[in-house]
Design a protein around this nucleic acid. Structure first.
Lengths: 215, 215
DNA sequence: TAGATTGTTAATCGATTAACAATC
DNA sequence: TAGATTGTTAATCGATTAACAATC
């Protein structure tokens, strides 16, 4: 199998923010929402919103916009957020606790069924209602719970070794919050979340502004 | 001033991961590192690495590669990571604590001088050595400490109102971890970190794989 | 009906990749 | 010297934006 690449990746990344706006409309009991309105709310071009929504297969009505309920369903179906997947948190530190606390992901098919840590003080306790197990029983427990997704928030030096254990336990998708490029085979899904890259962008923007101001 | 847009944004986002590899080479006492080696390490094309590094102004040596020390200096200068900026954490929850704990950012010009929260149990305490103040004294304290960057990790419903207080206090850059699109004037730097967009990508990759496997 | 909005087709823009001469 | 690697110029690819007919 060749390396997994998402087509329309930039569009896919924008869909959750659209969903957020559209849900507000739903709470507002609106029947329709137009691409123009979504665009205004997010400071985007209407044509971009329309193109992005088109990939979900939704069909709108000229003059009115998109039917709110159908649009939400279309986006969720496209993202696969209508199906559940068992997930485990590997590393129950501050970041891990924050992630497990986000109700949002739970509403979108992510069912966190266990957490793992090496700290004896944490083991046998809970984070946001989820049991914390010893890293020693990682493989057995993951298999037992049929975990598909691992949320990896261990310290970077342990990332690769931990990953190998995850794969032995049958995990097929890794949400990687370490700053390590994991070595895995092409059939494993890896999404790396890299705060440094966002910080780099922030830094460059600040410099650009400073330089502009100096003129 | 027009809306700030970073040219070469994708390249800028990759620079921190290059820096990571190059620092390893430095620890290894290597004098030179080639684009080919960096590319191999990160599963990228060598030409992409060379093009990305070129924006920092570094000049390499045919056959040898780039001088390690100079390359690190060039990347850090380009990113502005050789200059310090005062920053404050707004919202000292789990995510905020995790961010403040990352030594990495502190090494790259981010000097977190204060944290703010509304929880009386946290106020007057510390997170990773940083004082936590009441949100009530936000504006005065930010001004007093000459804070430029706000790391915004408050609950989403408070994001916009908090932002307005930040701007009144003279903050010019916001690292936004809420899922709210902040309304600010064009001269304010905002970098939004959106976990949902990464999760959307992970979800689509998983679906793509499932569908491929079903065939 | 008039006009706002969709969805399609084409044009533009920017990023990635390829080709290759220069060079240490 | 031979050959690996740089850096430049050109080609390709994909994403964004523009234009506009269709339509409710």
């Amino acid at each position: 199998m060749a390396k997994l690449k998402v087509s329309f990746a930039p569009s896919v990344r924008r869909l959750p923010s659209y969903l957020h706006i559209i849900r507000q409309a739903q709470r507002n009991r609106d029947y329709y929402i137009s691409g123009t309105v979504i665009a205004q709310e997010l400071n985007l071009e209407p044509i971009q919103v329309r193109k992005d929504l088109a990939i979900t297969g939704i069909v709108g009505k000229p003059k009115k916009g998109y039917p709110v309920d159908d649009l939400i369903a279309a986006i969720e179906r496209y993202l696969g957020w209508n199906n559940f997947h068992n997930a485990a948190l590997i590393g129950a530190g501050n970041l891990g606790s924050a992630l497990i606390g986000y109700q949002e992901f739970q509403l979108h098919g992510l069912r966190i069924v266990a957490a793992f840590d090496t700290d004896p003080a944490k083991i046998a306790g809970k984070v946001h209602g989820v049991d914390i197990f010893s890293m020693d029983i990682l493989e057995d427990k993951l298999r037992e719970l049929a975990v598909e997704i691992a949320i990896l928030t261990v310290p970077s030096p342990f990332a690769q070794a931990t990953t190998e254990a995850l794969l032995r336990a049958g995990v097929t998708a890794i949400w990687n919050f370490t700053n390590v490029k994991l070595k895995v085979s092409d059939d494993i899904v890896v999404q790396r979340e890299d705060l440094s890259s966002g910080y780099a962008l922030l830094s460059v923007m600040m410099q650009t502004k400073e330089r502009a101001a100096a003129k």
